[in-house]
Amino acid sequence: HNLTITQGKLFFHYNPKLCLSEIHKMEEVSGTKGRQERNDIALKTNGDQASCENELLKFSYIRTSFDKILLRWEPYWPPDFRDLLGFMLFYKEAPYQNVTEFDGQDACGSNSWTVVDIDPPLRSNDPKSQNHPGWLMRGLKPWTQYAIFVKTLVTFSDERRTYGAKSDIIYVQTDATNPSVPLDPISVSNSSSQIILKWKPPSDPNGNITHYLVFWERQAEDSELFELDYCLKGLKLPSRTWSPPFESEDSQKHNQSEYEDSAGECCSCPKTDSQILKELEESSFRKTFEDYLHNVVFVPRKTSSGTGAEDPRPSRKRRSLGDVGNVTVAVPTVAAFPNTSSTSVPTSPEEHRPFEKVVNKESLVISGLRHFTGYRIELQACNQDTPEERCSVAAYVSARTMPEAKADDIVGPVTHEIFENNVVHLMWQEPKEPNGLIVLYEVSYRRYGDEELHLCVSRKHFALERGCRLRGLSPGNYSVRIRATSLAGNGSWTEPTYFYVTDYLDVPSNIA
């Protein structure tokens, strides 16, 4: 807008934040220059609390790290170098490059900038070799853009010569660093050979998330399962459950009422301010606690030095998902009996873990797994792929695949051998790939016309006998059925096997 004052003059007093240069501009645009008398524009009460600059400061050096910015700028000295009290560095987070010096300023003089007072450097006698002032900004957020400017702080001049310097606002972004852990990993099994893994992005990506790394490792069953005799009275049979499938998407929606109208769909109840505040506090606490764990609990591995020492970490090797089922080394339970199943799973520490690289999504279907087997899954978020990966501390989750139908069934015939004193040795093959492992066998036998009897055969007993022995049988026709019990439950009964026990007292003698 054009402003013209045809008559009258300007009068400025007691404006401590208004620089004289701005008042002189007002004289020019209003056409009143030359009308004012000496005392109409006070030299001592206008701009006496402001830094009124008329020179431009330029930054000469900028260096960044993930949490620091090192700045240096060209030296500046007023005509009387004693008038320079120091520099004021202003900075704040700036997602967009549209910041002005006066953003967030209120009537009390406060604003949204963080201000650092910096002492002037030592003055050199040689004007050509003056030290460049600077400042190291610490405690910054990774991968965050900051708006920065600097200006001088000078003393009051009796001659009211307006001098000083100020830089333009520059924008500097800190470097990326390792992201925080992925949030809320959930693993479920939808079949006997697959596990579905879902997660949420890290709360602090500290860069642009480029991919996720998912490692999985087959877990050995508890050692007590191999040692305890679950045929003993009072000892509860062990059981394991597989990871249940995901709930429906509708039930997972946030901010939804727990109660549904019987007449149909209901609208979600909005969260109160107290609920939102509580969630923010919980989120802040979780982030602080995660940072504490990362800094205190997890110790970084030592990389190899120039002395030739090897990095103890196993090298990563990509495998196809079809090879995942046989990740671990199978060892027989008892070496003397080769027909026992290889369900003991000690994992070799030198073995390469299978892994998958996930790009542009937060889910993965891990296939080719062994049925009813526990897996430990390790999830890392990465925001750099080359020249070397920059990934987060791992988040861990466990899951067990679903049982395989008929995996616990005894394959092959049940054979028998009759000894003296009416002892019958029953023999059968253990299931080759049971659900988890076989903890015991149930032997059901009966003599024709009598009630059915049951015998429990422990895992250890089966390994020693290759089956079991029935003792003290009365003469007669017998039928026997056997079924295995694994961590997933009972298998199917075998087809009945028949044998006849004679009275050993009636056996004919070869003595003449």
Rank of each mutant, 00 (worst) to 15 (best):
D204M: 00
G207H: 02
G207D: 02
N208E: 11
I209K: 13
H211M: 02
V214M: 02
V214H: 00
F215E: 05
F215R: 12
R218T: 12
R218Q: 14
Q219Y: 15
E221Q: 12
E221F: 10
D222V: 10
D222H: 15
E224S: 08
L225I: 10
L225K: 04
F226K: 07
E227Q: 08
L228S: 10
L228C: 06
D229W: 03
C231S: 03
L232K: 05
L232A: 10
L232N: 12
L232V: 13
K233E: 14
K233A: 15
G234V: 09
L235C: 07
L235T: 04
K236F: 13
K236W: 08
L237N: 06
L237C: 14
P238C: 09
S239Y: 14
R240I: 13
T241A: 12
T241W: 03
W242T: 06
W242C: 01
W242M: 04
S243P: 11
S243H: 13
P245D: 11
P245C: 10
F246W: 12
F246H: 12
F246N: 15
F246A: 03
E249R: 09
D250M: 11
S251T: 13
S251F: 10
Q256M: 04
E258M: 03
E258T: 13
Y259D: 07
S262K: 05
A263Y: 15
A263E: 11
G264A: 15
E265L: 10
C269W: 08
C269F: 14
K271T: 10
T272N: 12
D273G: 06
S274I: 01
S274E: 06
Q275A: 12
I276D: 09
L277Y: 03
L277T: 03
K278R: 09
E279K: 02
E279Q: 06
E282G: 14
E282V: 11
E282Y: 14
S283W: 03
S284I: 00
S284T: 12
F285Q: 09
F285G: 05
T288P: 10
T288L: 11
F289C: 03
F289V: 12
E290I: 15
D291F: 12
L293R: 12
L293V: 07
H294Y: 04
N295M: 15
N295D: 11
V296R: 05
V297A: 07
V297R: 11
F298N: 09
P300F: 14
R301C: 10
K302D: 15
K302M: 09
S304Y: 05
G306F: 11
T307C: 07
G308T: 09
A309F: 09
D311Y: 15
D311S: 15
R313P: 13
R313N: 04
R316L: 13
R316V: 04
K317L: 13
R318L: 13
R318F: 14
R319F: 06
S320T: 09
S320P: 06
G322E: 10
G322I: 11
G322K: 06
G322D: 15
D323P: 07
D323R: 11
T328S: 15
A330D: 02
T333Q: 15
T333F: 05
A335W: 05
A336H: 15
F337Y: 12
T340Q: 04
S341V: 13
S342P: 08
T343P: 09
T343S: 07
S344H: 12
V345Q: 14
V345P: 15
T347M: 14
S348E: 12
S348P: 13
S348T: 04
E350R: 15
E350L: 09
P354A: 06
P354F: 08
F355C: 13
F355R: 05
E356K: 13
E356H: 09
V358K: 12
V359F: 05
N360F: 06
E362Y: 14
S363H: 04
I366S: 01
L369Q: 02
L369Y: 01
R370M: 13
H371N: 03
G374S: 07
G374I: 12
I377L: 13
I377T: 02
E378R: 06
L379D: 00
L379F: 05
Q380L: 12
C382Q: 00
C382F: 00
C382I: 01
N383T: 06
N383D: 04
N383P: 02
Q384M: 06
D385Q: 14
E388G: 14
E389D: 10
E389Y: 11
R390A: 04
C391H: 03
A395R: 04
V397T: 02
S398G: 03
S398H: 13
A399K: 12
R400D: 05
R400I: 07
R400G: 07
R400C: 04
P403I: 13
E404Q: 13
A407H: 15
A407D: 05
D408T: 01
D409P: 01
I410V: 15
G412T: 07
E417P: 03
I418Q: 08
N421L: 12
N421P: 14
N422I: 03
V423L: 02
V423G: 15
M427Y: 01
W428F: 03
Q429C: 15
P431C: 10
P431R: 01
K432R: 05
E433K: 13
P434S: 10
P434C: 03
P434N: 04
G436D: 14
G436S: 03
G436L: 10
I438R: 01
V439E: 07
V439R: 10
L440H: 12
L440E: 03
E442R: 06
Y448P: 13
G449V: 00
E451S: 15
L453E: 03
H454V: 05
C456S: 03
C456R: 03
S458M: 06
S458V: 02
K460S: 12
H461Q: 10
F462Y: 03
A463T: 13
A463M: 10
E465W: 06
R466L: 08
G467Y: 03
G467R: 09
R471D: 04
R471M: 07
G472H: 08
L473A: 02
S474T: 09
S474F: 07
P475F: 05
Y478M: 00
Y478W: 11
V480T: 06
R481Y: 07
I482C: 03
L487N: 06
N490K: 04
G491A: 05
G491W: 00
S492I: 13
W493P: 01
E495S: 08
E495L: 03
P496I: 10
Y498G: 07
F499S: 00
Y500G: 07
Y500D: 14
T502C: 08
T502P: 08
D503N: 06
D503M: 05
D506P: 15
V507R: 12
P508V: 11
P508K: 12
S509Q: 07
